[in-house]
Structure formats: C-alpha cells, structure tokens
Design a protein around this nucleic acid. Sequence first.
RNA 1: GGCGGGGUGGCGGAGCGGCCGAACGCACCGGUCUUGAAAACCGGAGACGGGGUGCAACCUCGUCCGUGGGUUCGAAUCCCACCCCCGCCGCCA
Length: 428
Amino acid sequence: MLDVGQIRADPEGTKAALARRGEAAVRDVDLLLEADARRREVLARVEAARAERNAAAKAIAEAKQRGEDAAVEIARQAELKEQQAADEAALAEADAAMQEVLLRVPNIPHPSAPAGAAEEDAEIVRMHGRPPEFGFEPRDHLDLAGPEGLRLIDPESAARVSGSRFHYLKGDLVRLEFALVQWGLQKLVEKEFVPVVPPVLVKREAMVGTGFFPEAEAQVYALATDDLYLVGTAEVPLASMHGGETLAEADLPLRYVGFSTCFRREAGAAGKDTRGIFRVHQFDKLELFAYCRPDDSWDEHERLLAIEEEIAQELGFHYQVVDIPAGDLGASAARKYDIEVWLPGQERYRELTSCSNCTDYQARRLNTRFRPAGGKPQFVHMLNGTAITSSRTLLALIEYGQRADGSVTLPEVLRPYGAPEVLQAPAA
RNA sequence: GGCGGGGUGGCGGAGCGGCCGAACGCACCGGUCUUGAAAACCGGAGACGGGGUGCAACCUCGUCCGUGGGUUCGAAUCCCACCCCCGCCGCCA
C-alpha cells in the first residue's frame, strides 16, 4: 500500500512513476485522490460535530455532578446526534471507497526497473557459465525421471488422485529434495538466517497484507468452511509474522529462511508448461525473507540475489540474471530480479528463482515498523527471494546430471547431505 | 467439540456508565545533586488522522482500552458476534 500523504503531496510524480506499470494504476491514483478529497471534506464536518457533542456531553456530566437537572441538554444531544448521522454515514462510505482503491494500487517501481510490460522486456543483467555440452541429444527431466525413465516422478497416479499438475515424487528424488533442503539450510544458517517452518494456512488479512489480495486472488486456494487460504509461498506467513509490531532498530535486519509447501492454482496457465514438474499446484520451497531499515534495502536486495546466485553456481547451473520490467512486476514489488536457468531439455532459459524488494508496501499494509534512535516509528522494508524449490531446482538438477545412458549423477556438494551419487529407480 | 477465566500504554497492573487517554509500579528521556556514576528528588513522555503551516517545531480538534456491531444524551465499563490467550473435560494423528 502506498502512502496517501505522499500521493497527495506529489500526485503527478506518483502517476508518472505508476504509468510504467500501465494505465490502470494511473486511473486508480485519480480515483484515490478523489476519494481522499471527499473523505477529508466530510471528515472536517464530522469532527466539528463530534467536538460539539463531546462538549455537550461534558456539560451534562458537570450539571449532574452539581445535582442539577440536565433534561434540556440531553434533548439537545439527541438532536445533534440525529443531524450528524448522515455525515457519519458519508464518512464511512468515503473511507471504504478509499480503502478499496488503496488496496488495489500497486507499489511504485524503482526508477532503475526496465521499461516495458512483457517478459521479453526484461533486461539481462549478467550471464553465468555456458550451456552444458553433453555429446548426445539431451532429454528433459520427465523423460529421464518419469514413468518411462527412472520412475521417480509419477504424474499419472497423481492425476487420478488429485488432478492434473500434481505429481508423486519418489525414491531418490525425495532423498535429493531433503538433501537440497538440508544443504541450503546449512548454508543460510551460516549466513545467520533464522530457519522457520511457518503455517501454510492463513487468514485473509495475511493475504491482503502481503499484497496477494486483491491482485492475485485467483491464484490462491481457499478453504471456504474455515475461511482460510493455502499459501503459494512462505513469503506470506513470513511477512505477516511481525504484523502490527514495532521492531527494535538494533534487531534489524531480521533474516529468515522459511521452509514450506506451496500451493498455486495456476489459473490462466491452462495448456502452458504442462509437461513435467515445471509448473505444478504443489511444491516445497526454501524461501529467503528479510526485514530491514529503508536505507539498507537496496543493498539487502543485492545480497539476497547474491545468495541465490551462489546456490545456482554451486549446483552447476548455467543461468542469466534478469531485471524484471516495471509493467511485469507483482503488485508488492518495487524491483525484482529473476534467475533464469538454462534448461537443456527445453533449450531455453526459464525462471528458477526470484528476488523482490517490496520496500515499505507490505509493511504499511501489515503495520510493521521500527523506531529509529530517538525518532518516530517508521515502516520497515521487506524483501523476499527463492532459495530452493522441490520442482524447478530438482528438475534442473536432473537435466544437468544426465548421461548418455539415461542415468543421472548429482553434484558432489549434496552428497554429505544424503543425496545419492547416481539416481536409482525405486524398487516399487 | 463442551464448560469456565481472561485480552487495558514498551512491560506489569488498577479501573464506580460521565471528573478516564486512562491510577500505580517497572523500563525510558530530561533536570537537580555528584569529579563521574549510582541512589534520591523534580519533571517529561503513547499511536494514528484532520486542520492551523509548503516541511518542522508548536497549537488545536478527532479517533484508538483485542476486532466489529449494538444500547445510551454519554461506553474501557452494559449487551451481541467474532478473533486470540489460559485452565479443566472430551476426542485424536
């Protein structure tokens, strides 16, 4: 959520900045300013009326103290209340109108975020490595590990049990997932991230607070009977964890690494990426999350990206870092980097991880602040980034480790954490 | 799931329907005293929003005692719903 005071102070600047996201956001700023003006106009009247009634109530109290009869004042009070009712209702209406628009307006993109709205407008920041050479025609992860291969990924049974875009992960791939998680966790704990297993069912407030609602409501599974929502990322509970709190400045930055299962409806993705486990309804993820002082957030953003790159490099991936264009940013992000890994099976770069600076957008919605030395409380900045996923990281490892005979070897670094040297087909 | 108790400022904890934005204690900030500190004493301090100002200091008004409704001229205080915490019972991976 943006700062209304800031928008009021510089409406044209705000609109110009938001125009990089598209026209809808610009129109919303106008709506917001209208609603805000209306609200303040009514508010002035309502507050004057309230002041009058407060004074009258005080007069009644004093009269009663003296043992006098206050019937006349009481009658007057009833009258004032009557007159005020319409304005109070108008105020509630104006408030609601403003809130609605305010929740919809996305974060202001950082000036350095590239122009454009399409995936292709992303700027390549840098490349690492080069595409692996196999000396044979590389296969994709489903050929290698699916029903026709090592039988470690079973989408067919899952389709019967749960529907499309679900899968069973079996045998050595499960060991690999847990090894990856342990390895990642170890690395992040060394970097002083606090591990967290958060709740994956959250209330509506958490979804709104992190900016997933209203923008991405269609992507979220809802449990109607309990009024809870399944998170698509640990970002939601990690961002909400300190909601309403005023953090101590000395505690910043707060860095967490959350492990959670993630649930995504993938509405609107019909027919897209249906092969294998690239785009699925359920996967596990190790997520980076940081709370920091506003002055530090751009450094923190680079730091999170560097960690993601370190992970990708140690796993042996060839990738490019892209800077997501303003028009393609999620509502909460001011700037976002993706790491796109080269997939031998698809012969192209695909999103592996993502890393966003949401500045104070989520903090304002969730009311998470800190008190600078001697100053007034202000909103923290929040950032999030993917460390490791059980879908795409696993997928890439399978494709990178393949050999001519269809067997798959795994990186040395994971062996101490329980990963097998070579993936074996399960007994059953 | 059933029954009972409870949510008040940074923390603890009072609070009669009007004199309560809220006693008191701790923590905090400033001052006196002291070579310095501690102690003692004196004083000050909440958040958010509107207006007076372009900002700030400051002044002023409003809102906030878990959340949302209601009763009342007037609600921290009474009523209802919801959320959360604690206890006991039941059920259970």
